[in-house]
Every structure is written in structure tokens, then in C-alpha cells.
Design a binder for these strands. Structure first.
Length: 271
DNA sequence: ACGGCGCTTGTCGGACCATT
DNA sequence: AATGGTCCGACAAGCGCCGT
């Protein structure tokens, strides 16, 4: 297995978290993988064999080979059908709205082929270029040119949305929306509307995702002492509330997660 | 498009419980 | 004593709708 991340061009670094590639030979390719919401929007190009995404226990779809995966607020499962080779762009929560006119909320909880988001020919052309490129370095160049060009006719992000988002990130998802708005309570309705449109989920939901991610990082990196401690450090009211949120976003409870889950991928992604 | 009203729905603190 | 969990009421967030 070979997982690599790359830093974006400085003009894009406020919008793009990173580029990443994952390659797994068919003979090592693994069983079902649990994907946990992390607040980011990804654009991914499948360069290897198809990848399934389960829509229920025993039903699945094949993911589009050039797609955008919007905000998710519940766990889901994917499974390689053979050789895995993926190139992807990880956007910050607010990052992707700058490149498309589609409301981001329409992308939530599913994959959208890129030809639905960009002018059809340019999407096709982009996909082909990415496929033909000889290495990640070239792919990054291609995608950066594409994005930088799109940014020129941009719909830039709302200031209230950005402020709220910054506050959420800073407080690791613990600050209440009302507190963030403080004196500007008149903006509440507007914030709700714009946040959903530009980020894809409501402010509170993103806050919860961020808070859980904080806890998850603690669990994975520190090897964690006990769950109570992790809960308090991530500012959950107590361990019981932590478990409840954990289950909501991951589908399992913390102990199961630490115990028997194949955490290879999760660990990779939450450095 | 914005701000505001008010109803519905969701969240969280807190108390408490069963299992190990 | 630690852990994973339930339930409830108060309050926060979400949302349709309406006037500007």
C-alpha cells in the first residue's frame, strides 16, 4: 500500500487541504472500508479498477471514475474490486464552492460525476488528461491549472460563513452558533441559508463533525488512555455523550473501533 | 435578497442505570 | 471504579413563510 499527500500551490492553499494518492496492488487490496465523515469535500479520480460503494448491507453502486464526493454526515462503506489507484483533491469545507455554481448542498452524501459540475467538454478533457498523465506531479499541475482557471469567474465565499467556519475550526467544533454570532444575531437566518449552500451542511452539523474528528485524532494518535479522558479533552459533556456522537458518525462505538476495525485507512487519513 | 416570526425538530446537560 | 448506555426537560438550531 502506498499513500502519499502533496501540498497545494500557494494560491490554492486556503482552499485545498492537500492532494493525495493511494495505490494498492490487487493481491493486497482489502475488504470493505468504513469511511467516516471528516468535513472535507473530495474530488477523486479512479485510475485503477472500479470501487464499490455500499448503499445498504448487500447492495452497492460502482463509483463514477471522475467524481466529487460532497459533505457526508454519516459513515459509509467502500470496497475495491481489484487494483486500487486513486488520485484525489481534498478541499476544505468551504473550498469547493469557489469552483462551481452548483449549490454544494446538492452534492452532500453522494458522488457526483464531474461532468455534471463543469461544462461537459472541459470535464471530459480534464478526466482524460488526468488519466494520461505519467505521474502525480503532472496530475497536480493539470488540476491546479484547471482550478486556477475556474477561480477567475468565481463566486466567492460569504464573509459571515467564513467567520463562522473559522470560529468552528478554532474552537474545534465546540462553540455554539449563537455564541459565534453574538451581536450579529440578525444574521442568523442568512447564515443558515448561505452556510448550507456553500458548505453543504448546516453550521451545527459541521461543528459536530469537527468535534468528532478532534476526538478521533486523539484516539488514533495518542493511542489514547481511556475514553472518558478523550471525551473531556474534546469537550464533550461526558463520556456518554461522546459515545453517542461517535456512533452517529462512525456507525460503531469507540471500543469496537479501537478493537477489531481494520483501521489502516482511517489512520492514514487522520494524521 | 434580507431580516424577522414562530412553529417544529434536534441537541445537550444532567440524572441515572447495567455490565464488567 | 470505569465504561457504555438510556431518558427527560430546557434550550438551541432548523426551517417555512411572510413583509420589506
Amino acid at each position: 500500500m502506498n499513500y502519499q499527500t502533496f501540498q497545494p500551490h500557494s494560491d490554492l492553499e486556503s482552499l485545498v487541504s492537500c492532494y493525495w494518492t493511494l495505490e494498492i496492488p490487487a493481491e493486497y487490496s482489502s475488504e470493505r472500508q468504513r469511511i467516516i465523515p471528516d468535513g472535507c469535500i473530495e474530488m477523486a479520480f479512479i485510475l485503477g479498477d472500479d470501487i464499490k460503494r455500499y448503499t445498504s448491507d448487500d447492495e452497492f453502486i460502482l463509483q463514477p471514475r471522475a467524481m466529487v464526493l460532497g459533505q457526508t454526515i454519516e459513515p459509509f462503506f467502500i470496497e475495491p474490486t481489484g487494483y486500487v489507484n486513486t488520485f484525489a483533491i481534498r478541499f476544505y469545507p468551504y473550498g469547493f464552492a469557489n469552483f462551481v455554481t452548483t449549490p454544494i448542498k446538492d452534492l452532500a452524501n453522494k458522488e457526483t460525476p464531474i461532468e455534471f459540475l463543469f461544462e461537459k467538454n472541459s470535464a471530459k478533457e480534464l478526466e482524460q488528461k488526468i488519466i494520461d498523465a505519467k505521474d502525480s506531479k503532472q496530475r497536480i499541475e493539470i488540476i491546479e491549472n484547471f482550478l486556477l482557471e475556474k477561480m477567475n469567474d468565481k463566486a466567492t465565499i460569504d464573509t459571515i460563513v467564513k467567520q463562522t467556519l473559522d470560529a468552528l475550526l478554532l474552537s474545534k467544533g465546540t462553540e455554539s452558533i449563537t455564541t459565534i454570532l453574538k451581536d450579529d444575531l440578525s444574521k442568523r437566518r442568512q447564515l443558515e441559508r448561505n452556510f448550507k449552500k456553500q458548505i453543504g451542511v448546516s453550521p451545527k452539523q459541521l461543528g459536530k463533525v469537527i468535534r468528532l474528528q478532534t476526538a478521533l485524532k486523539l484516539l488514533l494518535n495518542k493511542k489514547s488512555d481511556n475514553l472518558t479522558k478523550v471525551a473531556y479533552e474534546s469537550e464533550y459533556f461526558d463520556q456518554a455523550h461522546f459515545t453517542k456522537d461517535f456512533k452517529e458518525f462512525t456507525g460503531i462505538n469507540p471500543k469496537e473501533f479501537l478493537g477489531n476495525e481494520n483501521m489502516a485507512l482511517s489512520t492514514l487519513f487522520y494524521k
